[in-house]
Amino acid sequence: MPQSPARLTSDDPDSPDARACLRAYFALLADRIPGIDPTHVPDPDPEAASFRAPHGTFLVARAGATILGCVSLKTVEPGLGEVKRLWVAPESRGQGLGRRLMIEVEDFARSIGLTQLRLDTNSALTEALALYAKTGWEPTAPFTRAFPATDWFAKRL
């Protein structure tokens, strides 16, 4: 799989680029998961503060001025973080960008002392499920309400 030329940077979760990523992410969810609306999470995101340093991050992938993807992380409790909202633009899929975003967010988690991560996803997001399976994430017990999550994962760092 070719390496994506994207540049990954930490953005403020309320920045225009971060908000554009989230709109695209929720549009994807609405397209793939029955019962989800593109406005599933209000804009601006009410959880934005949890994705700011020093206890979180919101990573945006870009090629020049073009937004290609994002992922975010928040600290849940000491040692435990939650990965949220991994999204890769359709034109950038299959180039390793999702893997790069996950590696970067895991590295950030380690740098702030997190030793375990968790995430939830939906079975309609088959690319995400495949990525998690290939990169050491293990199924775990549900930790969020069921809808829209259908699958829960954890990873020791």
Rank of each mutant, 00 (worst) to 15 (best):
E104F: 01
T115H: 15
D120F: 12
D45S: 12
P46Q: 12
L29G: 01
P34M: 10
P34E: 13
D37F: 02
M102D: 00
A49Q: 15
G56W: 02
Q116E: 15
V105Q: 06
Q3I: 14
L80C: 07
M102Y: 02
A89Q: 11
V71I: 14
S92D: 13
S15H: 13
L101S: 12
V71H: 00
E77W: 06
S10E: 10
G64M: 08
L129T: 11
R19Y: 00
C21H: 10
R32E: 11
R145I: 08
F108P: 07
Y132C: 05
L28P: 03
L22R: 14
A49N: 14
K155F: 15
K84W: 03
R100E: 15
L86H: 04
Y132S: 03
P78K: 06
A27L: 04
F143I: 07
P139A: 06
A128M: 01
T75R: 12
L119R: 02
P78G: 02
L59A: 08
P16T: 02
E91L: 14
P90G: 08
S15K: 09
L8H: 09
P142Q: 06
I33L: 05
P142H: 02
D107E: 15
V83R: 00
A53N: 08
L129G: 09
L68A: 14
W87G: 07
T126K: 09
T140G: 02
N122D: 01
A128K: 00
T140R: 05
T115W: 08
P34L: 11
A109T: 06
G113R: 03
S15D: 13
P142K: 01
R32I: 03
A133I: 06
E127D: 13
K134N: 11
S15I: 12
V76W: 00
A53V: 13
D120T: 07
T9D: 15
W137N: 03
W137R: 04
L157N: 09
A63Q: 15
S4P: 10
